[in-house]
Design a protein around this nucleic acid. Sequence first.
RNA 1: GUGGUCGUAGCUCAAUGGUAGAGCCCCAGAUUGUGGUUCUGGUUGUUGCGGGUUCGAGUCCCGUCGGCCACCCCA
Length: 412
Amino acid sequence: MQALPGFRDFLPSDCAARNYIFARWRDVARRCGFVEWDGPVLEPTDLYQKKSGPEIVTQLFNFTDKGEREVAMRPELTPTLARVVAAHEREFRKPLKWFSIGQFFRYEKQQRGRLREHFQLNCDIIGETALAADIELVALCIDIVRAFGFTEKDFVVRISDREFWTEFLRSQKVAPERWDEILQVIDKFGREPREKTTEKLGQLADPVLRILSEGGKSEKLDQLVDGLRARGLADFVDVDVRVVRGLAYYTGIVFEVFDRAGKFRAIAGGGRYDNLIEQLSDGAVSIPALGFAMGDVVLGELIRETASAREAMQKATAAEQKIDIYIVIAKEERRADALAQIQKLRDRGYRVDYPLAPDKVAKQFQTAEQLGAGIAILFGDEWPQVKVKTLATREEVLVLHDEIITRVANLL
RNA sequence: GUGGUCGUAGCUCAAUGGUAGAGCCCCAGAUUGUGGUUCUGGUUGUUGCGGGUUCGAGUCCCGUCGGCCACCCCA
């Protein structure tokens, strides 16, 4: 038996890496004033079918439950967020700055960096129309990637604005019903043959291709970059109007994070979705919002393939997995005394381990070493004294058992 | 979902169509209370699974499942 395709087992080292990622996500988000929340892993399929665009539906991990309900494992958090905010927004002062770390699912053939399950950080700002919110969100996104040891040489945030395109389409007198379709074509630009793009755009082909090749400019995008420059983050961003993102609900600024080498899929992506909450609440609550998501899979790959980031992670996870004290029971008749001390040490907050079954002293020291213990305490013939050994220096001192705590406090 | 490619021990990989191996890991020892090194010994495989060709298949053919890559799509 093995795990289902696209689902991962997390062995201790994998879990350590995962916790390392979560810890940095959480730390930076909290540092920026975001508070953590979460929603259900299972949602009504309708939640996604209605508002996320038709593409998403074919890739849902969905089924009919025993109550004949059509349900789906959540593929993303934003629809849930919109629902929750619509229901509870009056309980909070605006703007809300919320983040969440959770597992998400999709049903599609897996590939590298693309599984059927992954963990994602979501950060959203709700109830603020000012561009300052967009700047804050992009800055947070940059700070989070930086927290893993990456620099402007390692990654870039490509920023665009859907309004840039909607204004263009309005100026070209294109019917609003066709906007989403044309944005999809722009999104695919570069992944599709040029002739196919031209054909789909029809008479819009010339102006659109001109913008795509010359690059677009807008006052809003300039202001956004200025805001980031004021924070010293301008080197992390590139304005690139080719970015529109696949989801239909985005209304303004959109952005994606890529590794500079272009080797991986997007590390993160997001944007403004000012109408989504109103749509999902059937017009009951109208409140602007924006957010981004960052997955653990691509980020983890980038960490493992970047020497500095990899070493930082290894150092942190090694330290996290180490224990403080290993208890060596040299004489089984001292086991009860050892356990009494173990309990005391653990109550003091030390990480303490010991052999569950009788074992040779040599083997016990080997185990102590392997577990990364700072010190070993040997219980044996010296009782009521014990030997406290600093493993790194091999120095050993005899202390009375009721002085262990103070001695240990000095050594660790 | 479509196409290509690969699948051998827990891991990394060997083996002209002719008896399935190595290293690492793990376990146990080196006269019984001291760890990173060393030495000795040991466990582990229906060669992913199921058919077929052949005197004989890990090796060739077909199917299937799984991994990887490209497409599709991207939250």
